[in-house]
Amino acid sequence: VSSEIYQWVRDELKRAGISQAVFARVAFNRTQGLLSEILRKEEDPKTASQSLLVNLRAMQNFLQLPEAERDRIYQ
């Protein structure tokens, strides 16, 4: 997982004009609270716990989908 993931998520929230709650639900089936905590802490993926890595990997995989497909999912 790239250490850029945190910025990618922030950029996607702005680009798509969606809330953290929507992104958390569709990208990795978690709550806004968890996403907020992940973004606030910005732990280095190289030293992250296994559970954090699973979530970061799910977010990264979601962000690799084509933009149009992500936008459809947000609706």
Rank of each mutant, 00 (worst) to 15 (best):
E4I: 07
S19H: 05
I38K: 03
Q60T: 08
N29Q: 11
F23Y: 04
L56S: 03
G33A: 13
E67F: 05
Q50A: 13
W8K: 15
T47W: 08
R57E: 11
L39M: 13
I38S: 01
L39P: 04
W8M: 15
V1Q: 04
R30P: 02
P66R: 07
E67W: 05
Q75D: 08
L53I: 10
L39W: 02
V54S: 13
E43G: 04
R70Y: 00
E69M: 06
Q75E: 14
Y74V: 00
R40S: 14
K41L: 10
K46G: 14
A21S: 13
A24W: 02
A27P: 01
N61T: 11
E12W: 03
Q32V: 07
L63I: 09
Q32S: 11
A68G: 13
N61E: 13
V9G: 01
E43P: 08
N55M: 10
Q20V: 05
V26P: 02
Q75A: 14
A58K: 14
W8S: 15
A24R: 02
L13Q: 03
T47P: 03
D44Y: 04
R40Q: 15
L34R: 14
F62N: 03
E12V: 03
V26D: 00
D71V: 02
D71E: 06
R10Q: 13
R40H: 09
F62H: 05
L13M: 15
R57W: 06
T31F: 03
L53V: 10
E37L: 05
F28M: 14
V1K: 00
Q32G: 12
E42R: 10
Y74G: 01
D44S: 11
I5Q: 03
S3T: 14
S2D: 08
Q64H: 12
R15N: 05
Y6L: 02
F23S: 01
R25W: 05
E4N: 15
L52I: 11
Y74N: 00
G33W: 13
R25V: 05
S3N: 14
P66K: 08
A16P: 03
A68R: 11
R57A: 10
L65G: 02
N55C: 13
Q60C: 09
F23L: 04
K41Y: 04
A48Y: 02
Q20N: 09
R72A: 12
I38L: 08
P66G: 07
V26W: 02
E67Y: 09
P66F: 00
V1N: 02
G33C: 14
F28D: 01
A24P: 00
A27L: 08
L65I: 08
S36Q: 14
S2T: 15
P45F: 04
L56C: 05
P45T: 06
Q60D: 14
L52V: 12
E43S: 07
V22K: 06
V9Q: 02
V1R: 00
R30F: 05
V26C: 07
L35F: 07
L34P: 11
Q32I: 03
F28L: 13
F62S: 02
V54D: 11
Q75W: 08
A24N: 09
E43R: 07
Q7P: 05
A16N: 03
K14D: 12
A68M: 12
V1S: 05
L63T: 03
A68H: 13
R40C: 10
R72K: 13
Q50P: 14
G17P: 06
P66V: 01
Q20R: 08
L52M: 12
Q75V: 09
A21D: 14
T31C: 07
E43H: 07
K14G: 14
E37T: 09
Q64P: 01
V9N: 03
I18F: 02
L53E: 09
D44C: 12
R40M: 12
D44L: 06
R40A: 13
A68I: 14
I5H: 00
S3H: 10
L63E: 03
R15G: 00
V54P: 08
L65T: 09
L34N: 15
T47E: 11
V26M: 04
P66W: 00
R57G: 09
R40V: 08
Q20F: 04
V22A: 12
L65Y: 09
L35G: 04
S36Y: 08
G17F: 05
S51L: 06
V54T: 11
Q75I: 06
A27E: 02
L34F: 13
F62R: 01
V1I: 10
E4V: 07
Y74C: 02
K41T: 11
I38R: 00
I18D: 01
W8C: 15
F28H: 04
I5R: 00
E4K: 13
D11H: 14
I18M: 05
M59T: 04
A68L: 10
W8Q: 15
K46F: 08
N61Q: 12
S49I: 04
L39E: 01
A27T: 10
E4C: 15
A24T: 06
R15D: 00
D44M: 06
Q75P: 05
N55Y: 12
L63F: 05
V1M: 08
E42I: 01
V1L: 03
N55W: 05
Q32C: 09
L56G: 01
D71G: 04
M59S: 00
Q60K: 10
Q60G: 05
E69C: 08
Q7R: 15
I18T: 06
Q50G: 13
E69S: 08
A48I: 05
Q60S: 11
E67V: 11
G17A: 06
E4S: 10
I18L: 08
Q75L: 11
E69R: 08
A58Q: 13
S3Y: 10
Q20T: 08
R72N: 07
N55F: 08
S36H: 13
E37I: 03
S3L: 07
Q60N: 10
R72T: 09
I38N: 02
F62I: 05
R40P: 04
I18S: 00
I38W: 02
R25Y: 05
E69T: 10
L63Y: 01
M59A: 08
S2L: 04
A27K: 03
E42T: 04
N29M: 06
A48M: 08
S51W: 08
P45G: 04
Q20L: 07
E37H: 07
A24S: 14
L56I: 05
G17Y: 07
R40Y: 11
T31K: 09
K14R: 08
T47Y: 11
R10D: 05
R72Q: 13
N55D: 15
S49W: 04
F28Q: 06
F62G: 01
G33S: 14
Q60P: 02
R57M: 14
E43K: 09
F62L: 06
